[in-house]
Amino acid sequence: MTAAHDILGDFLGQGVALAHADPRLACIDAHPEELKYVQQAVDSRKREFHAARACARQAMGLLGEPPVAIPAASDRSPVWPPHLIGSISHCATFCLAVVARKGENYAAIGVDVEPAEDLPVELIDAICSPREMAALDEKPPEHRLLWARILFSAKEAVYKCQYPLTGTMLDFQDMEVTLADTCFQAKLQRQAGMFGKGSILEGRVTFAHGCIVTGVTVPLAGLGA
Rank of each mutant, 00 (worst) to 15 (best):
F207P: 04
L146D: 07
P130E: 11
F94K: 09
A19V: 03
S87M: 08
H20L: 12
L96I: 09
C128M: 09
Q40A: 15
I70S: 05
L35Y: 06
G203V: 09
E104G: 02
D171H: 14
A100T: 02
M175Q: 14
P140E: 00
V42D: 11
D6E: 08
A30C: 00
T214E: 06
E156I: 10
V98C: 15
G224A: 09
H143K: 14
A180Q: 11
A116M: 15
E117T: 14
Q14G: 05
P219F: 08
D75R: 15
S77E: 06
R144I: 14
A54R: 07
D118R: 14
E142H: 07
H209Q: 07
R149Y: 02
E202T: 08
V213K: 12
G222C: 15
G196L: 13
L35C: 15
M175R: 02
G110E: 04
E138Y: 07
P66W: 10
P219G: 07
V111K: 09
M194Y: 13
H143M: 12
G203K: 06
L165K: 02
S153Q: 04
A208G: 11
A126M: 07
E138M: 09
C128H: 11
E117H: 12
Q39C: 12
D171G: 13
S129L: 10
K102V: 10
Y159S: 12
M60T: 13
R190G: 08
G224I: 09
D118T: 11
A51G: 10
Q14F: 06
L220K: 02
Y163S: 04
F195N: 09
C128Y: 06
P71I: 04
I200P: 02
H83T: 13
T168L: 04
G193F: 15
K36W: 13
E65N: 10
Y159G: 07
H5D: 08
R57H: 09
A59L: 13
T166P: 01
Q58P: 07
A59E: 03
C55E: 13
C95M: 08
G110D: 09
A148F: 01
F184W: 05
A192Q: 03
V121P: 05
N105S: 12
C211W: 06
A148W: 01
V213Q: 08
